Structure formats: structure tokens, C-alpha cells
Simulated assay, not measured.
Amino acid sequence: MSESLDAQTRDEIDDQVAEAFDAYLADRLAEPGPLRASLASSRSTRLVLGTVGLGALATALAPDGNIVVCWIWGAIAVTNVAWLLTARHR
């Protein structure tokens, strides 16, 4: 009997934690911000997906040197961050 009570108590706690986490995420998603604004724009999504696709292609075609791959992904990161910052000011 004690084991089933413990399992039931754990289930109730898990449910309460899940509900609190859901409420927290809903509040965070309702807040304005650059990431939320960029996700609302399909143009931003295309840019991010395009740069990641080009980065994957460039990584596959890059020579064995890791320096080249690091520069490629660094440029992609700078491009995407700059895009997020400009999207926020629109």
C-alpha cells in the first residue's frame, strides 16, 4: 500500500511540475523579443534555413582543415545575429 501511495504522490508532483512549466513557457512566449519577432516573419525563417543549408553544403565541400569550417560557421552566426538585431528594430 505504501508503494502505491508513493507512486501516486510522485505522479501528482510530476503533473504539478509539468503544469507550472507549461505556464512558464506560455508566459515567456508571450513576451516580445527579437527571436519571437523573427519567428513571426517567414522571411527571417528562410534566411536562417538558407544560411544553415549553405553552411552544411560548404562544410561538406570544405577541405579537411577545421579552420575553414570554423570561419564558415562563424560567418553564418554573425549573419543570423545581425539579421535578428535588424529585425528587432523594424
Rank of each mutant, 00 (worst) to 15 (best):
A18H: 06
V81N: 02
Y24K: 08
A58M: 14
F21Y: 07
D22S: 12
G65N: 08
L25A: 04
D27W: 08
V52R: 08
A7Y: 03
A58P: 07
G74Q: 01
A58R: 03
A20N: 08
G50M: 08
S44L: 06
S41P: 02
A77C: 15
P63S: 08
V52T: 12
L54E: 01
L85I: 13
V17G: 01
D22L: 06
A75D: 12
L85D: 09
L29F: 10
H89W: 09
E31W: 04
W83S: 15
G50E: 05
A77N: 14
G55P: 08
A62N: 06
Q8N: 10
V81P: 08
D15H: 05
A82K: 03
C70K: 10
L84E: 00
P34L: 01
A75L: 15
S2W: 09
G55Y: 07
I72L: 14
I67C: 03
G55T: 10
G55L: 10
S38H: 02
P63D: 13
D27C: 01
E31H: 06
G55E: 09
H89G: 07
H89I: 11
T59K: 07
L84R: 00
Y24S: 09
T45V: 15
L47T: 09
L39V: 04
A60H: 06
G33C: 11
E3F: 14
L54K: 00
R43V: 10
S41Q: 11
V17R: 08
A58G: 13
N66V: 10
E12H: 05
